[in-house]
Amino acid sequence: MEAVTGTIKSYSRKTGKGLIALDGDDEPVHVDRTGSAGIWLKKGLRVQFVRIHCPQGVYAFHIKLI
């Protein structure tokens, strides 16, 4: 699995869900509390992650701050 980078576009601590804008791609990636591995996410943070494909869409997993 190839790691990609992006920026947190939106994230709700209340729901634990949000979106990541990929570098060089218009299609956002979903993020949820389980994929963040306990990292406190907020809008504007730069992250590196692996994309996984689920029936609900593309999700970020193994997220790391960069």
Rank of each mutant, 00 (worst) to 15 (best):
E2S: 09
E2G: 03
A3T: 13
V4K: 08
V4R: 13
T5H: 10
T5A: 15
T7E: 15
T7H: 06
I8A: 11
K9H: 11
K9S: 10
S10G: 00
S10K: 05
S10T: 10
S10C: 01
Y11V: 01
Y11P: 03
Y11E: 03
Y11C: 01
S12F: 05
S12T: 00
K14Y: 07
K14Q: 15
K14C: 02
T15P: 13
G16D: 06
G16Y: 11
G16P: 10
K17H: 13
L19D: 08
L19R: 08
I20S: 05
A21M: 08
A21W: 02
D23N: 13
D23T: 09
D23I: 01
G24E: 05
D25Q: 04
D25G: 00
D25N: 11
D26R: 00
D26Q: 13
E27Y: 00
P28G: 02
P28Q: 08
P28D: 14
V29G: 02
V29A: 06
H30A: 10
H30K: 15
D32R: 01
R33M: 06
T34Q: 05
G35A: 05
S36H: 01
S36E: 03
A37T: 02
A37V: 01
G38V: 03
G38D: 11
G38H: 02
I39R: 12
I39C: 04
I39F: 04
W40F: 05
W40G: 00
W40I: 01
K42P: 00
K42Q: 12
G44H: 10
G44D: 15
G44S: 11
L45P: 00
L45E: 12
R46E: 09
R46N: 07
V47I: 07
Q48I: 08
Q48L: 06
V50L: 09
R51H: 01
R51E: 14
I52C: 09
I52P: 02
I52F: 10
I52M: 09
C54L: 13
C54D: 07
P55E: 11
P55F: 12
P55A: 09
Q56A: 11
Q56S: 15
G57A: 06
G57N: 06
G57K: 07
G57F: 04
G57W: 03
V58M: 08
Y59M: 09
A60D: 08
A60G: 09
A60E: 10
F61M: 09
H62G: 13
H62K: 14
H62Q: 14
H62A: 13
L65E: 12
